[in-house]
Design a binder for these strands. Sequence first.
DNA 1: CACTTGACCTGTCCGC
DNA 2: TGCGGACAGGTCAAGT
Length: 298
Amino acid sequence: MPELPEVETIRRGLQELIVGKIIKTVSSDTAATSSDMVKSFPNTPADVEQFIKKAKITDVRRRAKVLLIDLSTNYSLVIHLKMTGQLVFVGSGNRFGAGHPNDSLIGLLPDKSTRVVFDFTDDSHLYFNDQRKFGWVRLIPTAEVPDIDFMKKVGPEPLEADFTASGFAERFKRRSRTSIKAALLDQTVIAGVGNIYADESLWGAKIHPSTVVGDLSYSKFKLLYSEVRFVMNLSIDKGGSTNRNYVNAEGKKGSYMDFARVFRREGLPCPRCGTEIIKIRVAGRGTHICPNCQRGSR
DNA sequence: CACTTGACCTGTCCGC
DNA sequence: TGCGGACAGGTCAAGT
């Protein structure tokens, strides 16, 4: 589901909503089977008892598309939402005031997609929902988080101030014979780009997604670098993209799709030249392009 | 090693 | 209205 802007939007929400709260229990009282639960959240009851129960939330961080919820026990909840994962906070009673979208969720969660429930001591709750069950939650000592495979392999954060265009171009040398779209989606090259922002940034840089990485000029890499940062910053500003399932920590949708130039806009005119946007398949993924603007030139 | 493909799941949409 | 197949915001483990 979420790419960097969506995970960052959730992180900012959770930062405001749950830091300082104390976890009372971790559970599920839903239709999820026990094997589903084990897959989503494999830590043992003893781990939960020792390192989660009574723990205070000290911080909420993000690395690539992974959320890190730090606990006062020096353990962290490491969470990947994959395609359809959600982390939704619901206050106790009328916490947000009548009519607030979050309060409309009271009584609606947990539902059949709820995999893990965190109950706080003030009777508020955090729900991990995941329709397709690809996502996961792991409890890991905070100091060991950088040692897990994903963290060791993942590439640099594209929005960091010290991340430069030349650094960006450099990262692609390891994937010089594949398509630029496959390379952009490769989390070991650059962190956080997924299918939406790959298509959006390639349109912005006027690069055909099938273009072989090694055929791209440095000036094209500079353009692509700028476009990746532009679309991700814009999306964070708009609260992310809700294509289907995505909601933020308060259960609200993001509005980037209202600003998308090509993603899921097949049949509509290219906002730059008016040519009809088409949908093709690149790197095994549905891919949206303007066939006029993105001709695969260097 | 670099690269591609299929698998993991459930739900929805589209054509017959 | 039903049914089969394709497809969906992501990563892995296999294969070549």
